[in-house]
Design a protein around this nucleic acid. Structure first.
Length: 277
DNA sequence: AAACTTACCTGGTGGC
DNA sequence: TGCCACCAGGTAAGTT
């Protein structure tokens, strides 16, 4: 499922094909995904120029002079750039047709489970950070504001397990289930530990682990677990290097102890009882 | 009031 | 083969 690295890889993949281009057509093949598509999207976008792309957490931002198209890939979404005329497949819900050096190109959103979203934020509504879904988000893990110091400071009153606090996204964004499990393993922290009871030194290790793992995943082209397909159609391969995720019962790569799977807030957590205390 | 918990949306998969 | 429980991420609603 697309996590921050996949979204960033997608952004980098589509950016050269859509930045600076004029929108020629908007195609909607259903009412919406998680939420209805913005009303009158064609009138809003056709003839307008895409100035640039950006990303906030797992939200992909397609920016115009007059506002921002916010795209979320949910669990099963992916974007691809296609030549015009390619027949849509099942679950191809949304196209943005733009001009190109050799004619038109189609940015196509495919999302079987429809947990994704396409939303519009008008410039008149204020800064993008004030958008309902973006307000209250934590800092970017690969930005300057993220550190062990920040994690420590932000968790002084958090009694919930560190795994769930990471996942909540109000302190740091983009750390989904896979990377939460992997970074806690790398930092040697038990996912069940109450966030407020973790030392400053261990938070330094955790912040470093998150940065390293996310950066490495972006470099490697993102993971492809089940649903993700990169923009160029090739699979990434980060899942091959998982230490704990989806490895229940398999010997820990570090100590050989079988990896344990538990549930935390309806979600699977994978960890090594020996290496993570 | 902030922190925490639970339910829910959907379709693919795998067990029987 | 068909049925059905299960799983996933992030939001909303409900609870402490």
């Amino acid at each position: 499922m697309p996590e921050l690295p996949e979204v960033e890889v997608t952004r980098r993949g589509v950016a050269p094909h859509i930045e600076g281009r004029i929108v020629q057509q908007v195609v909607l093949r259903r009412e919406g995904l998680r939420w209805p598509f913005p009303p009158a999207l064609s009138e809003l976008l056709v003839g307008r120029r895409i100035t640039h792309t950006d990303r906030r957490g797992k939200y992909l931002l397609i920016c115009f002079e007059h506002g921002t198209l916010i795209v979320h890939l949910g669990m099963s979404g992916h974007l691809r750039v296609l030549p015009p005329g390619v027949e849509p497949r099942k679950h191809d819900h949304f196209d943005l047709v733009v001009d190109g050096p050799d004619g038109r190109q189609v940015l196509r959103l495919h999302d079987p489970r429809r947990f994704g979203a396409v939303l519009w934020h008008d410039k008149d509504e204020g800064g993008l950070d004030e958008h309902m879904l973006l307000r209250g988000l934590g800092v970017e893990p690969l930005g300057d504001g993220f550190s062990g110091e920040l994690l420590w400071r932000a968790t002084r009153k958090r009694s919930a397990p560190i795994k769930q606090v990471l996942l909540a996204g109000d302190i740091v964004v983009g750390v989904g289930n896979i990377y939460a499990c992997e970074s806690l393993f790398r930092a040697g922290i038990n996912p069940k530990t109450a966030a407020a009871r973790i030392s400053r030194a261990r938070y330094d290790r955790l912040a470093d682990a998150i940065k390293e793992i996310l950066a490495a995943a972006i470099v490697q082209g993102g993971s492809t677990l089940k649903d993700f397909i990169a923009v160029n159609g090739q699979s990434g391969y980060f899942q091959q290097t998982y230490f704990v995720y989806d490895r229940a019962g398999v010997p820990c790569r570090n100590c050989g102890t079988p990896i344990r799977q538990i549930k935390q807030g309806q979600r699977s957590t994978f960890y090594c009882v020996q290496c993570q205390r």
